[in-house]
């Protein structure tokens, strides 16, 4: 098994100026797999992702790509990983989809003007994600589903070693969720993917490895079967859950109301 791209987090304290989010966080995120960070709102999912590109102050060690994170320069971070959360442009300052993809490549070339390779990559990624027809549309004109795909393409166009996705499934209808999940799974071969989400159904159908987070503490981690056996998903969300199996394969998780 190829474990070269593992991320190692060994942190005593991490957080913002007057708000410590994590205490004694020890974690290995496996390389070339899809890891989901699952937890309720405010559990520290986004902070955990932001920590991986030096947006959160920490005391301890974080090893990304065999190097201590603090020693990796900004320009190398741009080549190494892609983080995508919500993208919204200011009013009156719109961009077209193709331009947004080229701007995402801007960390990879020196000088002001993109190379032929960058244009080729952008076109290839558009074909991969099925957004070729949107190339000349403005970001502000897109539907939520289209925008999510474009945002994913903006991450993929960097061809990152690590792909950090913050709620790639938010505000999406069922079909769009399935499509996004499919696109993410297709990238697993040469990318380490970490997704933050609070939707267990999306998580179960997308990920290989689970990290369950609540109030900055890791409740459980492991493969889906282990996590379910230990009743950890219930613990994380504090709700009763029913699991739906189809031919022995877990396909859904339903919260029990009342």
């Amino acid at each position: 098994m190829n474990r070269l791209n593992d991320i190692l987090i060994d942190v005593e304290e991490a957080g913002y100026r007057n708000n410590i989010v994590f205490k004694d966080l020890h974690l290995i995120i496996p390389g070339y797999k899809i890891t989901v960070i699952l937890g309720p709102n405010g559990s520290g999912k986004t902070t955990l992702l932001r920590m991986l590109f030096k947006r959160v102050k920490y005391r301890g060690t974080i090893v990304v790509d065999f190097k201590e994170l603090a020693r990796i320069r900004g320009s190398s971070i741009a080549r190494l990983l892609a983080y995508m959360g919500d993208i919204s442009l200011p009013e009156m300052m719109g961009l077209k989809v193709f331009e947004a993809l080229l701007i995402s490549r801007s960390g990879l070339y020196t000088g002001l003007i993109e190379k032929d390779e960058d244009i080729r990559e952008a076109e290839a990624v558009m074909a991969e994600t099925g957004i070729k027809h949107l190339a000349d549309r403005r970001l502000s004109e897109l539907s939520s589903g289209e925008l999510r795909k474009v945002v994913l393409a903006m991450a993929l166009v960097k061809r990152p070693k690590y792909l950090l996705l913050d709620e790639p499934d938010s505000h999406l209808d069922i079909l769009s969720r399935i499509e996004i999940s499919r696109l993410i799974k297709r990238c697993r071969k040469n990318t380490t993917i970490i997704i933050a989400t609070h939707d267990p159904i999306f998580a179960v159908n997308t990920a290989d490895y689970f990290i369950l987070l609540r109030d900055g503490k890791i409740i459980d981690k492991g493969a889906i079967e282990e996590v379910i056996e230990r009743k950890s998903i219930e613990k994380v969300f504090g709700a009763k859950l029913k699991y739906v199996y189809d031919k022995g394969k877990l396909i859904g998780i339903i919260p029990v109301y009342g």
């Binding site: 590109f53 892609a82 993208i87 701007i103 960390g107």
Partner: peptide
């Protein structure tokens, strides 16, 4: 303008986006 046009393009899409593109 020459020094700021590339970082400004990334800032246009938000702070987190600019950060993962390597700009503080």
């Amino acid at each position: 303008y020459i020094f700021s046009s590339k970082p400004l393009n990334t800032l246009l899409m938000g702070d987190e986006y600019a950060a993962q593109q390597g700009y503080n």
